[in-house]
Nucleic acid binder design. Structure first.
Lengths: 351, 351
DNA sequence: CATTGGCACTCGGTGGAATGAAGCGCTGAC
DNA sequence: GTCAGCGCTTCATTCCACCGAGTGCCAATG
């Protein structure tokens, strides 16, 4: 895959070819290209160029006498160098924005993002749930369930609530637990979860002897409550949209695809690859490393809160999706989701 | 749809026809029937009988010279009168039983039930989540989140935890909340949720003037915490199994089907119809009231805890599913799920 | 009267041939 | 380098003939 210098004409042709193929879904012949490319050349000339492009592996003829179809490499070059991103339509932006209602919970916002992606792009949407490392812990409480089981309640951002059942070695009475919670709240509330965790660990290691037994137990308990992080997960929306695309209509493949969405593990793997990138990323066909993604592409963008990337969202669809439309939508959705999550951040501090 | 008296021979023929169609998925001709029915009659005779059956609307010929295919009415008669349920295979029962691991949470058990149904029957499984009216409330706690928002924590069966955020008219301080929780726990813990609710309402109405302000507030709070029941929901598993059946392979229908599973509302409606029946129930084709169920059947069975029906589970598949295999599986799964939920019921009382 | 064998008829599916359209490669001219 | 033209390849569609499965009807039979 050495990168190849193409003259302007070849680039124009490749671009119009791909655009046409994305629109029509059928091999594009030289005559069509001659008409639509805007260049003033004859089909014969175009045929020559196409032969070159085929030699470079950018296009491919399904059979001797059919038009050309872009290859994965062709798409790659296209999105990297030839694609003109449509300026995001103002109405669309507003339409998306309106789906993120102001008072919504994190879960609602994520759901909304998934459904926006899927409905606006008519593809399958997916949202990597945010790591909650950097969300602020506003309160922690313990509740004795039974002899050795304690329910830890984490209130995050003053809104989200998480429960965890802890199995303990000895029995704690409710007043004890109350005290520990008070201690932890006094010291740690308002910090982000991973900071809290770091502090707890640090305190446990270094200043152990300076603390009385209660605080020590409190720290231990706190660490255990925070430590067992939920297994990160991914949210998928509108996978049935993919039934609309003929090239995926092979029942067998389709089943594989839908099951992958169900399992989610592989989707997760793809999204995890993107979490570092700070802008829109595109995987074409097998670039994702999954064979059954042969005819699929993935467009993702990370979203961030407080300048820190907390998750990724994106869409999956046929390789011939209209990137010019999809890319800005994914981009905007990521931004707006980030913004929505952000604006909701000022938790009313309690106590 | 007057019920029709069929002589033994006609019944035998209808049965073998349907059995054959379920196996092969293709119209059944008179010769095949003559061979497989076990009756010692010629194809010609069978043709006469088939003409009668067709007159009664039990079978139908897709075109002049094809074999016969059962109609919805035919299936109905078949499952009502002709079907011989296979005795549940002991190994299968054990296989299913083993999927309900002993210590699992309610959610896990329900998931397991869905996945068992889908994998064993190779159809789409669904489980109506149990109404939690009759599960015992073992503990209730309140946690002040911010000025007017209180988190109510319901511990059910000593295991399950439910959170609800209540928006209140005035500010309550944590000690106040603690008192109210104590009061409620003392009076109500261990009762089933709907009993609790009834008690709360009764007390509020009748003995209002005998209670001090605190208890009154406590009762109000308790009522609000319990009152907003989660919207009941349904769990769907393995809907991609349906992609295996040719008769549903029409992409368009398939999409409708999968989207229905996604939406779940219509599935819910079907399941709700079954919640009263105390045994396996079967809907064939349009009997469910949904046109797009044309070629689908639904087999359901309620499951119960403590003798009280708390939910329904079942499968959806093509009309020509093998009822003799599916029915006992659905039946057993329902029983085993009930048993598993039951054995887990003895909540360790706290406090 | 129920049963049966026979016969003509009707469809749907299959396979091959014919036709047409789309499009390419190549060549030779400008 | 560009282009028109020619011949070739391939796929898709159509048409037709044919086969097989299966029916409906009828007349014969016990």
């Amino acid at each position: 895959m050495q990168d190849i210098q193409l003259d302007t004409r070849a680039r124009t042709l490749l671009r119009t070819l791909i655009e046409s193929y994305i629109r029509e879904g059928q091999p594009v012949g030289s005559r069509t290209l001659a008409r639509t490319s805007g260049l003033n050349v004859s089909p014969a000339t175009i045929r020559n160029v196409m032969a070159d492009l085929e030699g470079m592996g950018l296009v491919h003829a399904p059979h001797t006498s059919a038009g050309r179809v872009p290859t994965a490499a062709g798409y790659r070059l296209f999105v990297d160098a030839l694609l003109e991103i449509r300026a995001p339509n103002r109405e669309q932006v507003e339409a998306i924005e309106s789906r993120f209602s102001l008072g919504a919970s994190t879960q609602d916002l994520l759901d909304a993002a998934g459904s926006v992606l899927s409905s606006v792009t008519r593809l399958a949407g997916m949202v990597r749930l945010p790591r909650n490392r950097q969300v602020a812990l506003s309160q922690i409480e313990f509740l004795r369930l039974s002899e050795r089981r304690v329910l830890a309640i984490l209130v995050i951002d003053g809104k989200e609530v998480q429960n965890r059942v802890l199995e303990l070695e000895r029995d704690y009475l409710q007043p004890e637990l109350q005290n520990m919670a008070n201690y932890l709240n006094a010291h740690l509330a308002g910090q982000s979860l991973h900071v809290v965790r770091g502090q707890l660990l640090a305190e446990m290691r270094s200043v152990r002897r300076d603390l009385d037994a209660m605080m020590l137990a409190a720290i231990d308990l706190g660490e255990r409550a925070i430590g067992e992080d939920d297994p990160d997960d991914v949210l998928v929306a509108g996978e049935t949209q993919l039934l609309n695309y003929d090239e995926l209509a092979d029942i067998h493949r389709l089943r594989q695809l839908l099951e992958a969405f169900h399992e989610k593990r592989e989707i997760l793997a793809i999204l995890d690859q993107c979490i570092r990138a700070d802008r829109v990323q595109i995987f074409i066909g097998r670039e994702s490393g999954l064979e059954w993604f042969e005819h699929c592409s993935v467009v993702t963008a990370p979203y961030s809160v407080d300048g820190e990337i907390v998750g990724v969202l994106g869409v999956v669809g046929p390789t011939r999706m209209s990137y010019d439309r999809v890319i800005p939508i994914v981009d905007i959705t990521a931004r707006l989701l980030g913004a929505a999550l952000n604006s909701r951040g000022e938790a009313p501090k309690t106590r």
